[in-house]
Design a protein around this nucleic acid. Structure first.
Lengths: 230, 230
DNA sequence: CGGCCTTTTGAACATGTTCAAACCCGGTGG
DNA sequence: CCACCGGGTTTGAACATGTTCAAAAGGCCG
């Protein structure tokens, strides 16, 4: 079986996940096939560094499973997360337009499976397939939006508000009670929200009065509408 | 002459400025002509609001002269700048991929001249002219980079460091002494850096020991290399 | 049950915000 | 040319918010 996987370079599960990726899901059948063709699957263990800021860049990535942390360092060595990428997310796609060096560090937050796409080959494909250029535009656009949202949130919201906002955008319920299971460690959520882990913890405890109960990764919300008032 | 301008919809100066815009400068001659064709020039006075978050969106913009402030409000009415756009900058271009509502408020920080492009017409053009799709990708990409840089800077740097960084990226000198003239009010710079005006002021005064002298909009730097150490 | 990593809590500290008052620069009009 | 105004800027003091470091507690997996 290993041989077959190697020849196809994708197993069935990876292939299906890849189809649902924010990038590939937008493509028509031929463009999709071309992209599948050049996809390389790779696995990393928790804490593995995928690449570092400034290293020569040859690929962009889509996450199939697990979470990846994109971060920068200041000159004292302190780290700050720029983005947390989960299943379906694409990163480093902004190198498609120009640039041959990675713009940040990337580290597996847990064990992850990724699809890698050679930048040069995708650039060529984008010339041929209008679909692919469109998908790139769409992807960059979505990414830009969320990044601008992030700046606005960082600058406008306090820690409890950011946490409340996160919870509200991650529970499907419209009103009334809800329950959420965090898909990753709290320390990762803290980084995503631009907080130290201690600050996240304190934010959670300050939300207790708003009906938020935390037990491990499980979070109970008494009343979603009440949380909106924060 | 006014009649001629109206027919052309662009005067010579506007046209030349437009040519140098981050967006149009990348285009080949035919694509450039198509974009020129659909450009609409408009002027705004200081503090005029161009549009508000959530309003129906029909255009994206390029700044020809002056500065535009893009910002969000929190529910208490406090404002936070997301981006400051100057001559050559393009904004709201992320609506090209999808979306029919503006994502933030836009206000003229001083008297400005803008080129407006109808989203729907540009979408159509992008289908036909590969150049335009490429320019969109390039533009989104650059924009995404600077936005991610902004997050990293917000999260990693203190106020004096942000100011030092701004100064260093805006003086052409490699080392030794330099002089900079701010292109806009300090309060605008404060917003751009994610600070209250008072915090900017204090940051400047804390940089005095690093050889930074401020007089009105003019800033003298004794030694650029020394500033890099901050 | 035990051990380890994650999370929480506490206390001291650093950094920015807010509000109010003083100041300064740039333009206006005498 | 100079005095004067007025918005933008600076300064001060009190405050709010997060960070940092250290130690205790908790949850998860064998």
């Amino acid at each position: 079986m290993k041989t077959v996987n190697k020849i196809l370079r994708l197993n069935i599960r990876d292939k299906n996940t890849l189809l649902r990726t924010s990038f590939l899901s937008q493509l028509g059948p031929t463009a999709m096939a071309s992209m599948m063709e050049i996809a390389n699957i790779s696995n990393y263990e928790a804490r593995d560094v995928l690449f570092r800021e400034g290293e020569p860049a040859d690929c962009f990535y889509s996450v199939l499973s697990g979470y990846v942390r994109l971060y920068r360092l200041n000159k004292d060595g302190r780290e700050a997360d720029i983005r947390i990428c989960g299943p379906g997310d694409t990163f480093s796609e902004c190198l498609l337009a120009a640039g041959d060096k990675y713009l940040y560090n990337a580290q597996a937050a847990e064990s992850v499976t990724l699809a890698r796409f050679d930048l040069q080959r995708v650039r060529t494909l984008a010339e041929q397939e209008k679909d692919i250029a469109k998908a790139i535009i769409r992807c960059l656009s979505d990414h830009l939006r969320t990044t601008m949202d992030c700046i606005a949130n960082d600058r406008l919201q306090t820690a409890p508000q950011r946490v409340a906002h996160y919870l509200l955008t991650h529970c499907q319920t419209e009103g009334g009670p809800a329950s959420i299971r965090l898909p990753f460690q709290k320390s990762l959520l803290a980084g995503k929200l631009g907080l130290a882990p201690e600050a996240l913890s304190r934010a959670f405890s300050s939300l207790r009065r708003a009906g938020v109960t935390v037990r491990g990764r499980t979070i109970q919300i008494t009343d979603v509408n009440a949380l909106r008032q924060i």
